[in-house]
């Protein structure tokens, strides 16, 4: 599925998620682009003790993904136990959360 990333009009830095300003130069002109959303897990964890609002979902996997198309993004792995170096692909952006599979 296509994933929306953001290119800074001023310094060309690519970032995700949507923000108020560019994380590098603080420029406010950010253009949405469509990307494939494929990437590699840089690191990960499985959380057993969750905050109150997510207690029912635990244990769940948090992954830090290096996208082939640029930025690094914190996301959830839909299922399974994540491993460093594992290839993953974007599935959906829902309620402010990036989901990969």
């Amino acid at each position: 599925m296509e994933m929306t990333l953001y290119d800074c009009e001023q310094c060309q830095t690519r970032s995700v998620p949507p923000r108020y300003v560019c994380p590098k130069c603080a420029g406010s002109g950010l253009t949405a682009i469509q990307a494939d959303g494929a990437g590699t897990i840089y690191s990960c964890t499985t959380i057993y003790v969750a905050p109150e609002r997510l207690a029912a979902e635990a244990p769940y996997a948090i992954i830090l993904v290096d996208l082939d198309e640029g930025p690094r993004v914190t996301a959830r792995l839909a299922q399974g136990i994540p491993k460093i170096g594992q290839r993953v692909v974007f599935n959906r952006y829902e309620d402010g959360v990036y989901w990969f599979e």
Binding site: I47, I62, T74, G96
Partner: peptide, 9 residues
């Protein structure tokens, strides 16, 4: 940010 929303502690 998406980080807090995703359940990172």
């Amino acid at each position: 940010s998406s980080e807090g929303m995703s359940g990172l502690t």
